[in-house]
Nucleic acid binder design. Structure first.
Lengths: 127, 127
DNA sequence: ACCACTGTTATAATACATATATAACAGTGG
DNA sequence: CCACTGTTATATATGTATTATAACAGTGGT
């Protein structure tokens, strides 16, 4: 499992870990039932504190992405059912609108943004 | 100019202001040269502190969205040229990837996400 | 010139988020 | 039993966010 920390990134360290673990799952590098490194292990690897990694794991548990149990390593959880969604579709739409607005205001043309959107759409179709 | 503050929203107040002013510009409710309310005025309207509004205005200036000048009201700036982009295309792509991952992990199907993407794409095409 | 507005700077206090450090406690598995 | 695991507690440090009060400085209209 390859995770890297960028101290220049504006985002907090624990969020970088959250995002990258999610990305590993999306790419298929991590599947349901797979074990994550222990908090101490991953902390050593990344050169950050144990509690920072733990913050990331807690965040992932809150979103139903992983399971935590005392004495055992964290494991990738089963896909959430729609009823249990922590992140709502409305939130996804809102974030996408904000993103589109930022892209437009930074000077990107509509068709350039559409290119980026359709590229993501293609990537989805191939999975 | 209609802006609303939601104290339950996890995002900081000043960012909510930033996002909504950007949205007003995207929708065409605010155009180049238009004046924004004074920091004190908007703060009173929203029931928040003057400095919180000012934080929002400073953020907008950093992104080249508005102009600030001593003694004058803030005005909507001209569209940034590509050379001056504060938000890079790479950042937009990264945010879109993160968003797509979140959507997938919350259980949205590929075609549902594609619907949301293409809806945004349509909205862009109509502007 | 005055006056009411504007942004700006300074200072302070409070609360929360982030990150680190150290230590102990409790469950798991070999 | 032992070495691992997550968990809780306590403490410290730093940065962000928000509010409050006050003063300073430039703009525009009368």
């Amino acid at each position: 499992m390859i995770i890297t920390i960028n101290k220049n990134d504006a985002r907090p360290l624990y969020l970088q870990v959250v995002i990258q673990i999610k990305e590993q799952i999306r790419k298929g590098a991590l599947k349901q039932g797979d074990e994550l490194p222990s908090v101490r292990e991953l902390a050593d690897t990344l050169g950050i504190n144990m509690h920072t990694v733990r913050s990331a794991y807690i965040k992932l548990r809150e979103q139903g992405i992983i399971n935590l149990a005392l004495g055992r390593r964290a494991t990738i959880a089963e896909m959430k059912k729609p009823e249990n969604k922590r992140i709502t579709e409305a939130e996804i739409t809102a974030r996408l609108e904000e993103l589109t607005t930022d892209a437009l205001l930074m000077g990107l043309k509509s068709d350039e943004i559409q290119k980026i959107l359709s590229y993501q759409s293609d990537r989805l179709r191939k999975q």
